[in-house]
Simulated assay, not measured.
Amino acid sequence: MQRVVGTVVRGLRGPIINQGDDIEQIVVDTVLNAASAEGFSIEDRDIVTITESIVARAQGNYASIDHIAEDVRAKFGSDTVGVIFPILSRNRFANCLRGIAKGAQKVVLMLSFPADEVGNHLVSLDELDEKGINPWTDVLTEAEFRANFGNKKHTFTGVDYIDYYKSIIEGEGAACEVIFSNQPKTILDYTKSVLTCDIHSRHRTKRILLAGGAETVYGLDDILAQSINGSGYNEAYGLLGSNKATEDTVKLFPNNCQPLVDGIQAKLKEQTGKTVEVMVYGDGAFKDPVGQIWELADPVVSPAYTAGLAGTPNEIKLKYLADNNFSHLRGEELKQAIASYIENKNENLVGAMEAQGTTPRRLTDLIGSLSDLTSGSGDKGTPMVYIQGYFDNYTK
């Protein structure tokens, strides 16, 4: 019988993960149990993905606001700290800001506008246009922002992040001044000690600050990049990728995940004889068309993956072939012509007309987005995802 199903994605339910659990064995057992219960066979080039959250939980990779405060204090001393370009998020940044403020005497909070790095808006571009404000050149004080735009609440959360972040800073005993600018060097008019909190543009921001005369520059990736009094840490990303755990703690991005994905692949190979690809994933890389929020608040989609997931897709656009190369064919003859073309396609289709319109992204970013959408961020209870047929094409 002709195969009529391509890619199949299954969210897998496993146990609630706690610190110290053998996450490697749990993933292997969950995959094998799911295959047995649901009646599917494990095949070469299947993919199992694991959300970073349960990996970090198993590692016990947590830190308190006191740990954050101690690291900030050690790096900045009694200097006024310019905290610039944070994202607007209760889950992602509020506890980080509590720790930062607790370790400082005064904070100058510089927010980008009209939106943060991942698309959470303070105001709309249309509102800026109406007021004649250029976000690339103009700098606003808090009073000027309020005079122009009033009290603005986030579309989805209903939070006024200006008031919220200011209250967090002052609640930890630090003085706070809020300004609005998209130019990193603006902060140097207020202090030469800067903690840049942007994610994907952090290296550029640090470079601009140092070239502009900053004396002390760190990023969130430098805070808790090593353990503070036994705390969790992330050597590569520090506080980037962290989430609120409790009112006083954060869960950090998981550490050293490569041995985990390689170990899961080896165990599945030993038990099934098949080579299954494995990756750890965090946020997907996609944008909400209504709220304009870009999902990727983690520093990377995947901190670790097996070798078979490296690279980008090498795919032919079927509709291009049907509309151009084989527009004169129909039915079985068309099917056979396209199948033959795919079987004999070049190993590198970069720049080829037949590949135009295919998604130009890394496999790990595509698969991570698929996994994130499947597992969700709420109560689905499927922190592992099993994907079959992803690497198949029309000829399989």
Rank of each mutant, 00 (worst) to 15 (best):
G6A: 11
G6L: 03
R10E: 01
R10Q: 11
G14R: 10
G14W: 00
Q19S: 14
Q19L: 05
D22S: 03
I26T: 09
D29M: 07
T30D: 02
T30I: 04
S36T: 04
F40L: 06
F40T: 02
S41G: 05
T49S: 15
T51H: 06
I54L: 11
A56E: 01
N61F: 02
A63G: 06
D66S: 12
I68G: 04
E70M: 05
D71A: 09
F76L: 03
F76G: 03
T80H: 07
V83W: 09
F85C: 11
I87N: 15
R90G: 13
R92S: 13
A101F: 01
A101D: 01
K102V: 02
V108P: 01
L109A: 08
P114G: 04
A115Y: 03
D116A: 11
D116V: 08
D116R: 11
D116G: 12
L122T: 03
S124K: 14
L125C: 05
K131Y: 00
I133N: 11
P135Q: 02
A143R: 12
A143N: 09
R146C: 11
N148K: 13
F149C: 10
H154D: 15
T155L: 12
T155N: 07
T157N: 14
D163G: 10
Y165T: 07
K166E: 13
I168Q: 08
I169R: 14
G171L: 09
G173R: 12
A174V: 05
F180D: 04
F180W: 04
N182M: 08
Q183K: 15
I187H: 13
T191L: 08
C197Y: 00
R202K: 14
R204H: 03
R207E: 11
I208K: 10
L210I: 10
L210K: 15
L210W: 00
G212C: 07
G212T: 09
E215Q: 15
E215R: 13
E215V: 05
V217P: 11
Q226D: 09
I228P: 07
G232D: 10
Y233G: 08
Y233F: 14
N234Q: 09
A236I: 04
L239C: 06
L252A: 08
P254G: 06
N255W: 00
Q258P: 04
Q265R: 07
A266N: 04
L268C: 01
K274V: 02
T275N: 13
T275Y: 03
M279Q: 13
V280W: 02
V280P: 05
G282T: 00
G282E: 01
D283T: 06
G284H: 08
D288Q: 06
Q292K: 13
E295W: 01
D298K: 09
A307L: 12
N314K: 14
N314Y: 04
E315C: 14
E332F: 01
E332P: 00
Q336A: 15
Q336I: 05
A337F: 03
A339L: 10
I342N: 02
K345C: 12
E347S: 15
E347N: 15
L349V: 08
M353Q: 14
T358C: 13
L363T: 09
S369P: 02
S371R: 12
D372K: 14
T374I: 02
S375A: 14
S377A: 11
S377Y: 03
T382A: 02
T382G: 01
P383C: 07
V385M: 10
Q388T: 13
N393G: 08
